[in-house]
Design a binder for these strands. Structure first.
Lengths: 162, 162
DNA sequence: TTAGAAATTGATAGTCATTTTCAGTTTTTT
DNA sequence: AAAAAACTGAAAATGACTATCAATTTCTAA
């Protein structure tokens, strides 16, 4: 299980980070068939750099199942999204990328250089939400947060960049 | 530029909240031509409900300049974005909407029912950023935050909804 | 294990937001 | 007012994503 650190966040390295098998189990438990195509998409998802576009997942998935088609990639991602196993990330150009879900209330940091993506938890913006509600009169139901910057590797390779 | 009142004073609100005229001034100061097409897009932007899609801006803009074309809407929005006069909002389906910028570090709340959009400021997530940096090792450079909920009017019309 | 039913698949052909191209027009400069 | 520069919009192209449908795979039940 995760270790509580001083700032209260869990370090999850040794925790059960669900892999393709765990996701497949969830999938079949929900009544979906265990198919070669779906398995290849799941594996592709974990072969990727924390997140990948449908086209990238197609390429990665074909290493496991050459007949895989793009339509099935989209359909599998839709099912995984419904089951909360995957989250859709938005890119500036409006295209999407998909990342495996590890934390229920996770958000993502994306490296602007190599696109490595890591989920983080502990997004506490309750105070911000409260001030927005009083500022605007809106009743806020959900929020969308993505962060961009440099991952540790890219910071080393390009010190002072960005 | 600004609304002249009967006694000749400017309404101070016009200074705080830039309208089409102020944006046009910025545009020409930056070296862009003052064209009928651009003026119609600027007016459309303020005729809208806080935010609008390119197609909606085309329709609104044609009220001021019937020959306006969609390509010019896109191009004008691109220029306005570069100048920081407009911000691109992302929708779940990957399409975009544009909102006039009022606050330099503003973010937006969007009504899920009527799509009214209001900018808010005072997003203080420095603490969240700091914890993300220590959790992930990333160096965060920017973030994206959008909130969704019900605007005051829709709360009244549909109490208890959503 | 097997046959039939049910679910899934992928090729093909859309759809739709956004971009590119280009010749003609408007705006700016002189 | 004329020439140069900037801008415009129609039409065509691009590319992500979705709908269709006949063929295949997986599941279920005996």
């Amino acid at each position: 299980m995760g270790v509580k650190t001083e700032n209260g966040f869990q370090i999850t390295r040794d925790q059960a980070i669900p892999g393709p098998d765990a996701m497949l189990a969830t999938l079949t438990k929900a009544g979906y068939s265990n198919t070669r195509a779906r398995r290849s998409v799941l594996e592709a998802l974990f072969d990727a750099n924390g997140q990948a576009s449908p086209a990238e997942l197609l390429a990665l998935g074909r290493a496991h199942h050459p007949a895989l088609g793009i339509v099935t990639v989209y359909r599998t991602l839709e099912v995984l999204s419904e089951l909360g196993l995957v989250r859709k990330l938005h890119q500036d150009d409006g295209c999407h990328t998909y990342a495996p879900v590890q934390h229920h209330h996770g958000h993502y940091v994306i490296c602007e250089r190599c696109h490595r993506t890591i989920e983080f938890e502990g997004c506490d913006i309750a105070a911000v939400v409260a001030s927005v509600e009083s500022q605007t009169g809106f009743q806020v139901r959900e929020h969308w947060l993505e962060m961009f910057g440099l991952c540790p590797d890219c910071r080393l390779e390009h010190p002072g960049a960005v």
